[in-house]
Computed example of a mutant assay.
Amino acid sequence: MAPLKSLEQEYPIIDYNFHNFCASHGIFSVEDLLLHDLYVLVAFADQESDSKRLKQGITQVLSIIDGQHQPWLNGMELLEDAQRNKHVLSTGCEGIDFLLKGGLRVGQLTELVGPSSSGKTQLCLLAASNAAKEHMGSVVYLDTGNSFSPQRITHFICRHSDPAIDQAKPRILQKVMNDILCHSVFDIFTMFHVLHQLEFNIRSQMQRGDTQVRLLIIDSISSLITPILGGSGSRGRALMISAGFLLKKLANEHNLSVLVTNHTVGGEGGISKPALGESWKSIPHVRLLLSRDRGGSMYSVSVLKHPSMAPGKASRFMIDD
């Protein structure tokens, strides 16, 4: 899905007048159109002089959406896809890799939940550096709080001294840095734009046979979604669900792993819980709760949700300073 403007060249029915009509109702993208009551939108179109063409434009956009749906797959096709494409990416953290039986599963959305200073960003940077170093592919890192640290990436790559590979470290570091593509993103609409562009780029890379994206990181998803959830309207929640479905679609259809972070908020009895509420709770395939020992260097991670693992399993680990 994409901004409506990007469809104009390929679909002449989606022209200047159609854009103006949609803009007058606050519709600038495919997502905006889906969030509207289509019956009401068609009723508005009926009031315009070129109503027939406007309704054809609405039908065309819906047809484009339907055309992007994956075909039905039988069980054997799904099994073959899982065996061929849905492997795991090591996070570079032995404790988490052991807990997850290898690391982040390709095709899935994994969420790291934790309070401030619990190590969420450190694990994102570690996972990014490890994926760029160990796997043939690139990493896309959406930084929502100016927390991306190339110095920390350098530390993770060069932390172990090994005379056999010390001379190769500058070359390895250059490869890793070149393969991590960082975008500063400060609102959900910019995130949608970046993700749509990413999907377009991935499709182009597949056609050219270029190296593909293997890991998508958003640190943090909650800082983008929380500002749109205020008030009693449903628009913010609909955008949140749309964002979650888009991330899962990217992961599954393009064989990449998605890692997002989420903060915690106060719950009943003063017990912390993941932010973004019940509607978001069903989105991630895997939810991990991260914490850090007070004043120490030990971290703990436990499973809140996993498709093939009981909640409550936990692991403890250290992250090199």
Rank of each mutant, 00 (worst) to 15 (best):
E8I: 12
D143P: 00
S138R: 07
K248V: 00
D32P: 05
E278T: 14
G145Q: 14
R159K: 11
D210C: 07
E80S: 13
D293H: 07
D321Y: 07
V113C: 15
E80G: 07
H69P: 02
L126A: 10
L126V: 13
L125S: 01
V61F: 01
L289S: 03
M136D: 15
S257Y: 02
S90M: 10
D37H: 10
F317N: 00
R203E: 15
M206S: 13
N85K: 01
Q174R: 11
I283Q: 05
N252H: 11
I271E: 13
A2P: 11
G107Q: 01
V61M: 03
V61L: 02
S129M: 06
L250S: 02
V301Y: 00
A314G: 04
I172S: 00
V303P: 03
D37K: 12
L224Q: 03
V301E: 04
V301F: 01
T264R: 05
L109Q: 00
F186G: 02
L216W: 02
L4E: 04
K175L: 07
A168G: 08
L126N: 01
H87F: 00
L181W: 04
N201I: 08
L126M: 13
I157F: 06
G236D: 07
S6L: 06
G92A: 09
R84C: 10
L198M: 15
R292E: 09
Y11P: 01
G209N: 11
A132L: 00
F317L: 02
G107S: 05
